[in-house]
């Protein structure tokens, strides 16, 4: 039993390493090759995990080989568009200028019901509103309405651009993050000043403090334990 546990730990760490090395993309955004490799790697790991009579290397070796090949192929994708096209496929335009591309739909063996369903999932109940519908290589459908049906932007309604900055987390659960203060071009003294404005004596009493380049500061004090 302990052997099984030890094997599970090793294979778990290997799978985590493999998935981490493959990149940060989520399952829904995996390319066909990445998706197949993810499935294969998890399947390969279960064989030596279940059977202690099988050498662990029977699981480790193919997973490492798959990982290495995937990383090499990914590097080739970056260098060659042609290789990427062969392995990942190309995007398909299903609706162009409001007209359904029937030959492309036949080629993809995609039914009209499936297209309508995907459009509804994207919030388009009427196909006439769609100017472009593009089936991406990862299987996702991108939908773009005619400009008259697009929601108005701030520019459309004559409002000035309100620049949004990413807030920096200065204090999290009583811990001061000095690198973030530096990133914000502020000093520790400024932090204490902001805290004193809110009547807080120490950063240890702060649950969350965020600030952005616009000077907006958000401070949430820690709640006292009951």
């Amino acid at each position: 039993m302990t052997v099984s546990f030890a094997r599970t730990v090793i294979l778990y760490l290997l799978i985590i390493f493999a998935l981490r090395a493959m990149g940060k993309r989520q399952v829904g955004e995996l390319s066909p090759s990445e998706f197949v490799i993810t499935l294969l790697a998890s399947e390969l790991a279960t064989i030596p995990m279940q059977n202690s009579g099988t050498p662990l290397i029977y699981g480790i070796m193919p997973i490492l080989a798959l990982l290495a090949l995937e990383m090499l192929i990914s590097s080739l994708f970056l260098k060659s568009r042609r290789i990427r096209k062969i392995a990942v496929g190309k995007t398909s335009i299903l609706i162009e200028n409001g007209k359904i591309n029937q030959p492309e739909m036949r080629r993809l063996r995609l039914t009209l019901d499936e297209l309508l369903e995907e459009l509804r999932l994207k919030g388009f109940i009427d196909i006439n509103l769609v100017k472009y519908a593009i089936l991406e290589s990862n299987g996702e459908l991108s939908v773009f309405p005619f400009s008259k049906d697009q929601p108005a932007t701030r520019e459309d309604i004559g409002k000035k651009d309100d620049s949004t900055f990413l807030p920096h987390t200065i204090i999290t659960d009583g811990v001061l993050i000095r690198s973030e203060i530096k990133n914000l071009n502020k000093t520790e003294k400024w932090v204490y000043n902001e805290l004193s404005k809110k009547g807080i004596a120490s950063y240890k009493d702060v649950f969350l403090m965020q600030a952005d380049e616009n000077g907006r500061v958000c401070i949430i004090p820690k709640e006292k334990k009951k």
Binding site: A21, L64, A65, L67, A68, L69, M71, L72, S74, S75
Partner: peptide, 9 residues
């Protein structure tokens, strides 16, 4: 990534 892949292979 290429270096890691080559080392792994």
């Amino acid at each position: 990534e290429t270096i890691i892949a080559v080392v792994l292979i």
